[in-house]
Design a binder for these strands. Structure first.
Lengths: 197, 197
DNA sequence: ACCGTTTTTCATCACGCGATGAAATATACA
DNA sequence: TGTATATTTCATCGCGTGATGAAAAACGGT
């Protein structure tokens, strides 16, 4: 490969490794991704990956830990008109995931979640606390018991997760090839029904 | 382990291997499951797995290929009263998956789907053709373009898949611990709205 | 009682994995 | 210039994997 020793130009090798890791993790998930494959893609010796990151878990944490955090996005939606909440949510999530990086991030998290119990816990707690907990708190409908509200919020989340699975993982053509607008027309009212009663 | 040679009693060793494989595939999916782990669980030498099955793919095919086929179930539902279709579907799928073996099968297929592109194609085609294609054909609403109907069927499928992911994989407590009746009350009308307009 | 067949373990092979410590080279700063 | 430091590859180790061929033991039919 390259000669030994430090490279001439001021290249961001560490960044290249992270980028390569993101690509590899997003196809195949956690277990199926090898440090050697990451190194290969980054054009780098496997030992260098170990030099920068303590091990595979640390590398994974680095990759998923740099979040385009959805809190801001969510806040804006929750302050919009209440009768548009379902459609706004649907559109926001779809646009978030339809971007190339969002899509990549979703696939990555999903695949790792499926194959790695630890990731599932992380994602579960994040979703419950940071996303849907906030929604429940914001659009609270006092006429229903809290249990019911939470179930409804969970089902709204289920609809979005299922949608993403169909569109990005399973790629069922009826869903994968539909336009964002058409999907928002259908899913918006459903979310509205779950969340604002 | 055991002495060499054939075992005394008329044990169904092949069946034990299949059972062990089912258990192992269902936790960890395709890639993360090793033939050695299957053999270990079955109390058998790894080479014996190879004796009965040509290799890992063949073993996997054997395990997922024995289907409790949902066609019959589906047929019964489609002949029931149309205004109950959403609730019937929701209840049927939930009961199917809530049984221990159904749950296991779902986890297995899901994990393999997530980590193995080939499985995703299989599942996609099966869902489109055998399940939701039939629903669309049966409850066809001529006032909407076929494209729209198919999107709606796909979204109904998404809701059920997402529900199962939340309940069985992510185990978000709000959804995982709810009763079947409560979920049917909420999801039934949503499916009804997607499918029968 | 014999012999062919089936079932089972044993002993390997080659390979890819994650990890580690040492060596080589470029940069940074005095 | 000289020397400390950061960056990078090299050479391994030990382990688990999927696969294969041969040997041993029980069964089944005659």
């Amino acid at each position: 490969m390259s000669p030994r020793g430090r490279r001439p130009g001021g290249e961001d090798t560490r960044g290249a490794i992270v980028e390569a890791a993101r690509a590899e993790f997003s196809r195949g998930g956690y277990d199926a991704t090898s440090l050697r494959a990451v190194a290969r893609r980054a054009g780098v010796d496997p030992a260098l990956v170990h030099h920068y990151f303590a091990g595979k878990p640390a590398l994974f944490a680095e990759v998923v830990g740099a979040p385009a955090d959805p809190s801001a996005l969510l806040g804006a939606i929750l302050e919009g008109p209440r009768e548009e909440l379902g459609r706004s949510l649907a559109r926001a999530f779809l646009q978030l995931w339809d971007s190339p990086e969002g899509r990549t991030r979703f696939e990555m998290v999903f695949r790792s979640t499926a194959s790695h119990e630890e990731s599932a816990s992380l994602l579960r707690e994040f979703l419950a606390k940071e996303v849907f907990g906030r929604i429940v708190a914001a659009v609270g409908d006092p006429s229903a018991p809290q249990e019911r509200q939470r179930l409804r919020a969970g089902l709204a989340a289920s609809q979005m997760v299922g949608l993403a699975v169909m569109r990005f993982i399973l790629r069922l053509s009826w869903v994968a090839e539909a336009s964002v607008d058409d999907i928002v027309d259908e899913v918006g009212p459903v979310l509205q029904g779950y969340l604002v009663r």
